[in-house]
Amino acid sequence: MKKKNTILTGLAVLLLLIYLIYANKNYDSYKIRVLNLCAIYAVLGLSMNLINGFTGLFSLGHAGFMAVGAYTTALLTMTPQSKEATFFLVPIVEPLAKIQLPFFVALIIGGLLSAMVAFLIGAPTLRLKGDYLAIATLGCSEIIRIVFTQTQNITNGPTGLKSIPNTTNLWWSFGMMVFTILIMVALINSSYGKVFKAIRDDEIAAESMGINLFKHKVLSFVIGAFFAGVGGGLLGNLLGTINPNMFRFTLTFNVLLIIVLGGMGSITGTVISSFIVTAGLEYLRFLDESINLGFIKMEGVAGIRMVVFSTLLMIVVIFFRNGLMGNKEFSWDGFLSLFKRKPFEKKGVQG
């Protein structure tokens, strides 16, 4: 059974590689960017689901961790000439002016700095619960954004960074997505994952069993922030330009929407939802423009795509109250059983 699952997983990865090769050769830049965004939001969704879905912490500070990762990766990958041209009002601090690192190294450093910031935030705030924790983490996220706006000689202030190398491509984004999925699956299936779920289900019972609540909450918070920083770094080097206004609460809300729609506590649901939400928002843009059907012409209304998309989300939430997957995960046995069922087969009735 284990060998069969390994073979099927290997075939799935091979099909993904073939698809990425085909997409790189045949898709235009717009479609490739949408695919990159889908994979990046999958990384961000998984990182937030670890904190909110699996550990049960109501955190709204994700945009701040993304900002740390994005700015760190951008500053460490920009050329000295680009930094000199970008920081024309106030010169960049000397150590950063000459530093240029490979993208992967910069990405990991961005994730580690995000994790460090999360530890500094989590140490005092994770003793709070529920709405109080949400308000505290949201406030910390806004503090990070304001600090980045004011530190002109490091982040270039409200102007932001430009001429960031467009290093992020399908291989980087989907590679990091697969890596994040593997780490999350291994973590959730480990003893630490069982502790996270125990804290989510009942903190009092978990503490009575000898679980150190604070230690494991901080651990979940820091790991989630690391991958949020990595996702932020991928996003910054995909867009080529970033500024503090990108990392407002709206960005956290978009990631929260993905994990709620996919299912709090479901890795599979988060990945599926990230593709649905990201691609859906992009491909509904035609609703904002004029539509000519030949026999009738409808003028576009700015923002109508958000109305339609929100309506579709409401319908999905009404029929799937726990999200698309709930807390279930994809399994090859369950997938193959769909093809083995006989027509009109009912439970308890032999075909």
Rank of each mutant, 00 (worst) to 15 (best):
Gly122Phe: 00
Phe275Gly: 05
Gln81Phe: 12
Val277Trp: 02
Ile183Pro: 01
Ile276Ser: 10
Leu17Trp: 05
Thr241Asp: 09
Pro244Ser: 07
Ala63Ser: 15
Thr241Met: 13
Ile135Val: 13
Ala67Asn: 00
Val195Gln: 05
Val255Tyr: 12
Lys347Gln: 07
Thr278Phe: 02
Pro165Glu: 06
Phe174Arg: 01
Gly56Gln: 14
Ser337Arg: 15
Lys346Val: 03
Val147Leu: 15
Gly224Ala: 10
His216Lys: 11
Leu138Pro: 00
Ala225Asn: 05
Gln100Phe: 02
Lys129Asp: 02
Thr73Leu: 10
Ala39Met: 08
Tyr283His: 10
Leu238Met: 12
Leu57Gly: 04
Asn166Pro: 06
Asn254His: 03
Gly122Met: 02
Lys2Thr: 03
Gly231Glu: 10
Val222Trp: 02
Leu170Cys: 05
Ala12Trp: 03
Thr72Gln: 11
Gly351Asn: 10
Gly233Cys: 06
Gln150Asp: 04
Ala123Gln: 13
Thr77Ser: 07
Gly224Phe: 09
Gly240Asn: 12
Gln350Gly: 00
Leu293Ser: 09
Val260Phe: 12
Ile259Tyr: 05
Ile108Gln: 09
Pro165Gly: 05
Ser163Pro: 01
His62Asn: 13
Ala70Cys: 11
Asp333Phe: 02
Ser331Thr: 15
Asp288Ile: 00
Ser337Val: 00
Thr311Pro: 01
Pro343Met: 11
